[in-house]
Computed example of a mutant assay.
Amino acid sequence: MLAPPLLFAALAALFLFGMNRSDPDQLPSAVAGNTAPPVGLAPLGDMATFDDASLRAGGVTLVNYWASWCAPCRAEHPQLEAMAAEGVTIYGINYKDRDADAQGFLAELGNPYAAIGTDSTGRTALDWGLYGVPETYVIDGTGKVTFRFAGPITVEVMNAQILPAIAAAQ
């Protein structure tokens, strides 16, 4: 007799909790708030690559997953170029792409990355909890992921979310 009202109350509480998320459009992150997962990447051509120590070198950095076959990656590229021109250190991870295609993408659009590696198998992406490309992580100077944004960085996203996250991580 008491079970139906208790079950109803529990379901109502669960629905209210789910509806009160701060940003229902943003996917949850498995790594935000934790130390950045290990980075095991192959080099892209003769470009400089990065490793775990690079993410813990003392400055705030971005890690950006991208691919040449990704149209939203092409759309966000001008914002990455603008941030790099302002001194933001951005490490790129080329995701499940052919090296020649990735190098062509950067030759055409410019290279905003301080260093870059390839994740041709997607193993590193699994460790990072990647939903898809593009996806960008803000890393503080100790290697902790302080913010994750899934999707293309527009001018609005850059100004309202990414740059404030960078400032907060310093």
Rank of each mutant, 00 (worst) to 15 (best):
Q26D: 11
L27I: 14
A30D: 10
A30T: 15
A30C: 01
V31W: 09
A32L: 07
P37N: 07
P38G: 12
G40Y: 01
M47N: 11
A48E: 03
T49D: 00
D52E: 14
D52L: 08
L55R: 08
R56V: 00
T61C: 11
L62W: 04
V63Q: 08
Y65P: 02
W66T: 09
W66N: 03
A67W: 08
W69D: 05
A71T: 10
A71H: 09
C73E: 15
R74E: 15
A75M: 15
A75C: 00
E76D: 04
H77W: 11
P78K: 14
E81P: 02
A84V: 01
A85L: 03
A85P: 01
V88R: 05
V88F: 00
T89W: 04
I90G: 13
I90A: 09
N94V: 12
N94M: 03
Y95M: 03
K96Y: 05
D97F: 04
R98H: 06
D99M: 04
A100P: 00
A102Y: 03
A107E: 13
N111L: 09
N111K: 02
T118A: 15
D119E: 11
S120H: 01
S120Y: 06
R123T: 13
L126K: 11
D127H: 04
W128I: 09
L130C: 10
Y131L: 07
P134G: 12
E135A: 05
Y137P: 11
V138L: 08
G141Y: 10
G143T: 10
V145S: 11
V145A: 12
R148N: 13
P152A: 12
I153P: 00
